[in-house]
């Protein structure tokens, strides 16, 4: 499946950076999937709670269908104001704008997290030195910034499915690095840990399937 990385969607990045996942997904949904629950290739839906309760249809490869409770299964263990469902028969519409929009949202979330981690470490000290100024911390910060730079460069340069996969993997790495920067704070269900988990689940739900490599 080919998914273009439209630059028209970069405002989702800005909203995610400024206001977080729920706000950005709400905007994305209103502009690309109003009234319809967007589904990933496994039939998973992961959206803000108010969207889940307001939609009366769900996405399938053949177009939207009316919701039928018997086909839906709520999935637990989520956070950041988002809820997850599995809907039998649900799936992405070819060429839909939601998957690339989700990637833009994740880029903004990664930048938001790294900014928060930086502020967190600016105000902590180790032996009277700001933690942010420790060389090993700077190195980890650089690796996270490098992941963001790579994802941003891919958006700018390379439309298509391989780019989308790499963007998600790169942003996954950024999220994990941010958790390392936060230390135990990142292990709490609320706050940055929960935000990283929500971002990872967005990728888990909505990354298009990778075409099989040829050969045995």
């Amino acid at each position: 499946m080919s998914t273009a990385l439209s630059v028209d969607q970069q405002h989702y990045r800005a909203v995610a950076f400024a206001h977080g996942a729920a706000a950005a997904l709400t905007l994305l949904h209103a502009e690309t999937s109003a009234g319809v629950l967007p589904a990933g290739p496994g039939g998973h839906v992961f959206v803000p709670e108010h969207i889940e309760s307001a939609c009366d249809r769900y996405e399938t490869p053949d177009g939207p269908r009316a919701r039928d409770g018997a086909r839906e299964e709520p999935l637990g263990g989520v956070s950041a104001g988002l809820v997850a469902l599995r809907i039998r028969g649900a799936g992405p519409t070819h060429g839909g704008a939601w998957p690339s929009g989700v990637a833009w949202v994740r880029l903004g979330l990664a930048e938001r997290l790294l900014g928060q981690a930086t502020e967190h470490l600016r105000h902590r000290t180790v032996q009277q030195t700001a933690t942010l100024n420790l060389p090993l911390v700077r190195a980890m910060l650089a690796d996270a910034a490098g992941g963001i730079a790579e994802a941003a460069a891919l958006f700018a340069a390379a439309p298509g499915s391989p780019a989308l996969h790499r963007i998600h993997r790169s942003l996954d790495e950024v999220g994990r690095l941010c958790l390392h920067l936060f230390g135990a704070v990142g292990f709490l269900a609320t706050g940055p840990g929960g935000d990283v988990r929500a971002s990872e689940l967005l990728a888990d739900a909505y990354t298009p399937e990778r075409p099989e490599r040829e050969g045995s």
Binding site: Q10, H11, A14, F17, R112, L132, R138, A139, A142, G146
Partner: peptide, 23 residues
């Protein structure tokens, strides 16, 4: 790479990476 990381971290902290606020 260690030198590059120091450069990159400083560049990020100085807002030179181009980020969401500019999007």
């Amino acid at each position: 790479s260690n030198i590059q990381r120091l450069n990159l971290a400083q560049g990020y902290l100085n807002g030179r990476l181009g980020h969401a606020q500019a999007a």
